[in-house]
Design a protein around this nucleic acid. Structure first.
Length: 609
DNA sequence: GGCCTAGAAT
């Protein structure tokens, strides 16, 4: 009977069937076996595997007699429920209350918690206890040590432990490979993979997703292709969601579409991770319509699905749609989380919905018990300052429990300039200087603020600071996508084979724009030079080159899609609004902070960015 | 009976 029950419980756990599990639990109590043999511990693990952490904890707490297996089960249960801090918190009770010593299973679980929390200090303490214990030769625990050190950033220590493993298995190799990859040590990661006798999907995924995390997108894609050439079958969708995520970050729409096809071909279109990644990929790839389609095709949407589309819509300036989807989401009974609110308040800040944004911020705390973090305050601050509520902004700044960074100060400063709040601008500028300035565009704002208040000495000081620190702008570049092909342009680049055609086109457009009232705004140029020189500099900005090329080479009438590494400059923003209406084309620019849809002389960002 | 590896939204 005992054996039969254990087996049934294990079946519930693997099938994630809590209903059947609860029935069995009732039966076990009824026949009086609830304290018998392995049953109590197996019940804990069954509840944990079915996602019912509260039931698992209650059983554990009410157990009259706990053993190391009970401890391993509850620690794993907490880790599974994404509560690794609970594991660390209760562990000392194993000694103080239960007078038990940890075994290898307990060590491994604990190290898993440390890895999840990035807690190197406690991880090292566990390591020390493990070494002193009778289990110090256990190789599974050593695998968790490798993983823990790698996740905490001590890759070389991870390697030292890895080298003490007598017969490493797939798990230890994978942990080590991922450790190298996620800190960007590409060649070591690749070498380790090639050293493996039997490479499986797990090890390739660890390598590729690690490289994606460290920003090595091109190598990651190359390896993804190599993996398929090697004949490794993609039998689960793990790696697909990772690669789709990379296409999103990389704004590689065409590549992302190909992976989407692969998803369909392999039949993983119902994986929630994959669907959510697709929504984000299309949104970041600047095709918000496709993102919406992908969203509506997602079955069993969770908070991440809804949040992805809300954030996507917000970044594309579609605040109304974002807010309306939020209502739909609430109607389905799902609870929003911190990220959802970042997206929502961000959406409000880009259309000046001050009251809605403030209400959402309040609702987040009052209705959902969420604690606002720095990002929420930043968005709210942005909302106030962009909409001209500068006193509220300053008030919030002085009462909020976080220190803001240079970018937020800079955005506040630019709002002061925009709304003519000279005195507050000076206060903000002084705080910004005290903080230490790194971003070249902040120097421009500072100069303009002091100059605007006729504080010439301060303006001169800022210029001095700027040259003393040898501030240089990161070279701006823009990439224009034309179907499967794309072309990259750097600011000031004049060596392109099609430069003559582009020059003629841009000159012609420039003339037409000036007739419609365009005046170049040279205050966006960093360097100290004459007015004509500054105008020339603007003329060769990379986004203009990319758009010109797109107009010349792209399919007539198609949307021109450009990705820029920096934020689009204010003057170029004006220019693109003119160009889109002159040529009657839609231009979509993804810059470092958001999307700009230029159409009929207007931009979706309503000139806030 | 219980342990270790790869994935989505700011």
């Amino acid at each position: 009977m005992h054996h039969h029950l254990l087996q049934s419980l294990r079946l519930c756990a693997t099938g994630g069937n809590p209903f059947h599990g609860k029935t069995l639990h009732a039966l076990i109590i009824k026949i009086g076996l609830n304290q018998y043999g392995a049953l109590p511990n197996t019940l804990i693990s069954m509840y944990a595997k079915c996602g019912l952490i509260k039931h698992a904890v209650q059983l554990f707490d009410e157990m009259p007699q706990r053993d190391p297996v009970s401890w391993a089960s509850i620690l794993t249960a907490y880790n599974r429920a994404n509560l690794p801090n609970r594991s660390i918190a209760i562990f000392p009770n194993m000694f103080t209350r239960d007078h038990l010593q940890p075994d290898n299973f307990v060590f491994a679980s604990l190290l898993n918690s440390c890895a999840a929390l990035n807690h190197l200090q406690i991880g090292r303490q566990v390591h020390a206890q493990f070494v002193l214990s009778e289990f110090s030769f256990d190789e599974v625990t050593k695998s968790s040590l490798v993983d823990m050190y790698a996740k905490c950033g001590s890759v070389d220590i991870a390697r030292t432990v890895f080298d003490t493993i007598c017969s490493p298995n797939s798990v230890s190799w994978t942990a080590m490979i991922n450790g190298y990859a996620r800190v960007g040590r590409k060649s070591e990661a690749v070498k380790l993979l090639k050293d493996m006798k039997v490479q499986n999907l797990f090890s390739w995924t660890a390598l590729i997703s690690g490289l994606i995390q460290s920003g090595h997108f091109v190598s990651a894609f190359d390896l993804f292709i190599e993996m398929q050439k090697e004949g490794v079958k993609i039998v689960d969708p793990f790696i697909l969601s990772s690669v789709i995520g990379a296409s999103a970050t990389f704004a590689a729409l065409e590549l992302g579409k190909q992976v989407h096809c692969l998803v369909l071909k392999l039949g993983f279109e119902s994986s929630l991770y994959v669907c959510n990644a697709l929504v984000d990929m299309y949104a970041k790839g600047s095709d918000i319509t496709a993102a919406k389609t992908a969203f509506w095709y997602t079955g069993n949407k969770d908070v991440v699905s809804w949040t992805s589309i809300i954030v996507g819509l917000a970044q594309h300036g579609k605040a109304k749609e974002a807010l309306s989807l939020y209502n739909d989401m609430i109607c389905t009974g799902l609870k929003p989380n911190e990220v959802t609110f970042v997206g929502l308040i961000y959406a409000c800040s880009h259309v000046g919905l001050v009251k809605t944004g403030r209400d959402l911020f309040k609702s987040m705390v009052d209705d959902y018990g969420l604690k606002p973090n720095l990002q929420h305050y930043t968005c709210l601050l942005d909302l106030y300052s962009r909409s001209g509520y500068l006193d509220e902004a300053e008030n919030l700044l002085n009462t909020m429990p976080f220190e803001i960074d240079e970018a937020v100060w800079a955005s506040l400063l630019s709002a002061c300039k925009r709304f003519g709040k000279t005195q507050m601008g000076i206060r903000v500028a002084n705080r910004l200087i005290g903080l230490g300035v790194k971003d070249p565009s902040s120097y421009i704002l500072l100069c303009n603020a002091y100059a605007g208040a006729s504080m010439w000495e301060n303006a001169a000081k800022v210029r001095k600071l700027m040259s003393a620190f040898d501030v240089k702008k990161e070279p701006g570049y823009s990439c224009v996508h034309l179907g499967k092909e794309s072309e990259v342009f750097y600011a000031g680049e004049r060596g392109h084979p099609m430069k003559n055609e582009m020059l003629v086109l841009l000159k012609d457009l420039d003339e037409k724009m000036r007739k419609r009232g365009y005046v170049p705004d040279v205050s966006f140029v960093l360097h100290d030079m004459g007015k004509q020189e500054k105008e020339d500099q603007l003329f060769w900005h990379s986004e203009r080159l990319a758009v010109a090329y797109g107009l010349l080479k792209g399919v007539p009438g198609s949307v021109i899609r450009v990705v820029k590494n920096l934020r689009v400059c204010g003057d170029c923003h004006t220019v693109l609004k003119f160009i889109c209406s002159i040529v009657g084309r839609e231009i979509v620019v993804r810059d470092a902070s958001r999307f700009h849809h230029f159409k009929d002389g207007r931009c979706s960002c309503s000139d806030f960015w």
